[in-house]
């Protein structure tokens, strides 16, 4: 038995897990070797001190905290447990949501766009009077109080605006084409 072998088997030696013969050899080596005796003494002293260390106590709030956690564990389980009522509710909610999503997205996804024929909006003469475009410069009354509705309308539809109206491509387009509005019916 040498020191290295003593160290290799020391743990099993002190736990009594080696054969009787090897144990006797270990004991004999320890008796004769100052170095290994010192090692053994150091370990035993350290072990004694280790076992004298105060042990921790469970704090007073440990049980209430654990109790609380387990209560919520049970609570969560009961909420998660499938039942007919909650299942039916969930299914109906999902169905309504799917329906709404489908109706919202169907026009965008599908090929058919709803086309609604509406009568053309044509800007014509001012209501009430037959319209004759004035070729002269509009005249404005001196004071606002003397400015009648008819004069105002004539003034608005003076020849500068008339030109705009006559050559407006938008107006021509609107006259010839029915207005098509695209959207949800």
């Amino acid at each position: 038995m040498d020191c290295q072998k003593f160290l290799d088997h020391y743990s099993e030696f002190i736990d009594g897990r080696i054969q009787e013969e090897v144990s006797r050899e270990m004991e004999a080596h320890r008796h004769g070797c100052e170095r290994c005796r010192g090692y053994s003494r150091t370990f035993e002293t350290g072990r004694e001190l280790l076992q004298e260390l105060p042990t921790l106590d469970v704090p007073p709030d440990f049980r209430p905290r654990l109790d609380h956690r387990i209560f919520h564990l049970e609570d969560g389980k009961s909420l998660a447990r499938p039942s007919l009522g909650s299942g039916a509710t969930m299914a109906s909610v999902m169905a309504v949501a799917a329906l709404l999503a489908f109706s919202a997205w169907a026009p965008a996804v599908g090929d058919v766009e709803p086309r609604v024929e509406l009568p053309a909006v044509v800007v014509g003469a001012p209501p009430g009077a037959s319209f004759t475009p004035a070729r002269t410069n509009p005249t404005f009354p001196a004071t606002r109080s003397l400015f009648t509705t008819t004069e105002f309308q004539d003034g608005i539809w003076g020849d500068s605006h008339d030109l705009l109206r006559e050559y407006s491509p938008v107006l021509d387009h609107r006259r010839s084409q029915p207005v098509v509005r695209v959207g949800i019916e």
Binding site: L7, Y10, S11, E12, R17, T42, F43, T45, G46
Partner: peptide, 20 residues
Amino acid sequence: VKSRLNRARNNFARIIAPLL
């Protein structure tokens, strides 16, 4: 387990030796 325990004890003794 045997190997780790032996090494752990050895390390422990080595660490505490100068302290004792």
